[in-house]
Design a protein around this nucleic acid. Structure first.
Length: 420
RNA sequence: GCGGGGGUCGCCUAGCCUGGUAGGGCGUGGGAUUGCUAAUCCCAUGUCCGCAAGGACCCGUGGGUUCGAAUCCCACUCCCCGCGCCA
């Protein structure tokens, strides 16, 4: 949700954003609805004022034993007019909200303009791409040979894009989570394990309408949705709250499984565990002051980079173009890790500044002093590690000639061995 | 799942039976006073509309009754206690 002031005073900023994102949106309808709803507020407020005045008079007359029949009749009429107007108001208000909730976020000026991912810009590369003097395998071959994964039975039991992890791969999976939490704790993040299902209201605060269709699983017969990431549950954690300025920034290390429909991804990354319906993730989530948010954004990214450097996974940092940017984000960096089996860099981290977009939907504000006007907080989120994709990179980059996999040094103490 | 009790403007609480402007305490912020501190006193302290003056809304949520609902009625929800079930 955007600040309605922008809608009234600077709609051209929004028009440009929509053009840069290549999105069709009936902005004029939204502007009209905003105007209508404000006019209705003025009218109904006025009638309520009248009602309050008459109610006061009736109360006084009754107290002093006078007849109030005329006033009561007057009151009845005002009430009737009001309730008619209220029906219109409720409808207008809900139309406005529904539309406003689908309007994407503004775009930061440093974001490259372009229609899709081809316009994303590479900022830097880190690490040496591993060279092999033998014919390398992809993560599926490696893990099936070592009895680390069972995709056929997962397909039988749950369907495509599910997997059983087995043996040491389970331990590496857990090691990644464990190490990630240790790593963020050291940086004073508050570890937090979230509910894995949240209600519609909370979900709507964190994501934008279409995502319900394409990403989010719904629990039948309940107002519950499986989270696509702990971000959804952490963002809504402080909904309807006014936070104390001195508690900022609040940095959380969210940990949870992630559930995703992956609708519309047919044919892409069909094999293995790169694109799956379920994985674990440790996520950075920050509630920040507006003026500190860009500094926090850069810092989150540098924490991510340090993490993959310690894991010894070569990567490159991309800044997403306007056309590829998620609708709730004003600027996003992706970290793409090297995956030897695919001979390419693939996305494993997404690091975004959402400004006040989620905070407005969730009504999360802060203030420094009791009497200050509360202002909307800024929210930022970044993957630290999404297990399944990181496993792909580890399996493929650390494979040996005889078909084994070296455990990255930093994880060895968690796994309990150096090679699997 | 069953029975009982509850949810009031950050926290605690009054008001509910008997419908008529939601009151008090604490905390917090600002100010006054005072060698310092403490104490005391005053003001402020939820949301929305409005340039402002001002106004509307707010008693877990949603309905209903009524001229008028925190208060009466219905449904839902969450919390607490007891019982049941259970990893």
């Amino acid at each position: 949700m955007l600040d309605p002031k922008i809608l009234r005073e600077n709609p051209d900023i929004i028009r440009k954003m929509l053009k840069d994102r290549a999105i069709n949106f009936s902005l004029d309808d939204l502007i009209r609805l905003d105007k209508e709803r404000r006019e209705l507020i003025i009218k109904t407020d006025d009638l309520r004022k009248k009602k309050n005045d008459i109610a006061l008079e009736i109360a006084q007359k009754k107290k002093s034993g006078q007849d109030a029949t005329t006033l009561i009749e007057q009151m009845r009429q005002v009430s009737e007019t009001l309730s008619g107007l209220e029906t219109v108001q409720t409808r207008t208000e809900s139309e406005y909200t529904k539309l406003a909730l689908t309007l994407p976020n503004l775009i930061h000026e440093s974001v490259p303009i372009g229609k899709d991912e081809t316009a994303n810009k590479e900022l830097r590369k880190w690490g040496k791409i591993p060279q092999f003097d033998f014919k390398i395998k992809d993560h599926i071959d490696i893990s099936q040979n070592l009895d680390l994964i069972d995709l056929e039975r997962a397909a039988k039991v749950a369907g495509a894009r599910f997997y059983y992890l087995k043996n040491d791969l389970v331990k590496i999976n857990q090691a990644l989570i464990h190490y990630a939490l240790d790593f963020l704790s050291e940086k004073n993040y508050v570890p937090i394990q979230t509910p894995y299902m949240i209600n519609r209201n909370s979900m709507e605060g964190a994501i934008i309408a279409n995502d319900f269709e394409d990403v989010i699983y719904k629990i039948e017969g309940a107002d519950l949705y499986l989270i696509g990431t702990s971000e959804h549950a952490v963002a809504s954690m402080h909904s309807d709250e006014i936070l104390e300025g001195k508690s900022l920034p609040m940095r959380y290390a969210g940990v949870s499984p992630c559930f995703r429909k992956e609708a519309g991804a047919h044919g892409r990354d069909q094999k293995g565990i790169f694109r799956v319906h379920q994985f674990e993730k440790v996520e950075q989530f920050i509630f920040s002051r507006p003026e500190e948010s860009w500094k926090e954004h850069e810092q989150m990214l540098s924490i991510v980079e340090e993490f993959y450097q310690k894991l010894e996974i070569p990567y490159r940092i991309m800044v997403l173009s306007s056309g590829d940017l998620g609708k709730i984000s004003a600027k996003t960096y992706d970290l793409e890790a090297w995956m030897a089996g695919q001979n390419s860099y693939r996305e494993i981290v997404s690091c975004s500044n959402c400004l006040d977009f989620q905070a407005r939907r969730l009504k999360i504000r802060f203030r420094d002093r009791t009497n200050d006007q509360p202002q909307y907080i800024y929210t930022l989120n970044s993957t630290l590690v999404a297990t399944s994709r990181t496993l792909v990179s580890i399996l493929e980059n650390f494979q040996t000639k005889d078909g084994h996999v070296i455990v990255p040094k930093i994880l060895q103490k968690y796994v309990g061995k150096a090679i699997i």
